[in-house]
Write a protein that binds this DNA or RNA. Structure first.
Lengths: 191, 191
DNA sequence: AATAAATGAGTGAATATTCATTCGCAGATA
DNA sequence: TATCTGCGAATGAATATTCACTCATTTATT
């Protein structure tokens, strides 16, 4: 087994366990077991459980961001840009439920709130691509003249809620419904 | 100290600690300490930590539901009914941040997902009042012809997102913004 | 005095992390 | 080629901590 394989296996095991049982249902011992690795080995790759959790989050976010950018261009109309990002986000979460559940748990934990506070200053991550879209829309008077944070809530809130219900197995959406839901979000933010 | 005071103090302490540090940052020993009570005393009132957590949630939900029903009447127009409920919900969460943060944590934990699954069958709790509203709106062709769960997501998603950001101290909304946000939610669900 | 309520040190299980030891193998040596 | 050597990677038993929960005892109430 190669060095990088071990790191990947640890990541995979952590993702799976945290997703299924939550942060506290994922002890390092079980992560190690699941990864086919000794308990101490994790500490060859990660300083602590906290850094493992952090690094996994940032890796997932990077992948998500890459997917959102696929086929995205600022030359499209604002509505097209929004629909592209919204449906891509929802579809990605639905086809990668573990990713969604991990990111959501992270975001609601002390880790995530700390991250959010930092990002209020210099914007990074997936948020800036949406920020640009909303700012353009407000300037061009296509979107309502509301604070950015309300636009974020109106756009993301429903999509996250749907992703959650779907990954929990409470509902099952098809592509048409995904589009309908994203269009309704647009109705919420558009002027 | 009266018997009921002790129970209330335990509840208050649990709410405060869970709100600030999460379920796992709220060990029974600290809840007892914060409540001014011995560790064993909690077990005079609650069978286990789990039942304490459950009972606290249901108590908070009951209070919230009572507030939402204040001044609510099905004789109002659908839009008025929705704006009443939406703004009342958001205002209540903003003025009771601990309540919001507790309920959100609960809902995302295994406790909450179990509860949600049960409620899919026989509807109870705060959901039924919204369910009636949405069903009326769809029947009267005032709302989009979408599955109920999408309406729930469109209506609650943004409000919850805003309540979260506000209770985390990331934003600060005034009454006008609360109304604007709720009106935008209406735009999302209306035909 | 009799009963009930409250106490808090104690118990055992679980957990994150450490560290003395082992392992595997890339080069060096003969 | 065959053997040795050094070293970082990997190990997993041991450690120290934390936690939910118990129960013999004390305190309050009637």
């Amino acid at each position: 087994m190669k060095v990088s394989d071990k790191r990947d296996n640890i990541m995979r095991a952590a993702l799976e366990l945290v997703t299924e049982k939550g942060f506290h249902g994922a002890p390092m011992s079980r992560i190690a077991e699941e990864a086919g690795v000794a308990a101490g080995t994790i500490y060859c790759y990660f300083e602590s459980k906290d850094t493992l959790i952090d690094e996994l989050y940032h890796e997932l976010e990077e992948k998500l961001l890459a997917v959102l950018k696929e086929g995205y261009s600022t030359t499209m109309s604002l509505r097209e840009r929004f629909l592209h990002l919204g449906t891509a986000l929802l579809k990605y979460f639905i086809t990668n439920p573990a990713c969604f559940r991990y990111m959501e748990q992270y975001m609601l934990s002390p880790f995530g709130t700390a991250l959010k506070k930092n990002r209020l200053l210099g914007q990074t991550g997936e948020e800036s691509i949406f920020k640009n879209l909303f700012e353009d829309g407000i300037f061009l008077k296509v979107l309502k003249d509301l604070p950015l944070f309300i636009h974020f809530a109106l756009a993301f809130g429903p999509l996250i809620a749907l992703a959650r219900d779907q990954t929990l197995g409470l509902i099952s959406m098809d592509d048409a419904q995904i589009t309908q839901a994203t269009e309704a979000c647009w109705d919420g933010i558009k002027r």
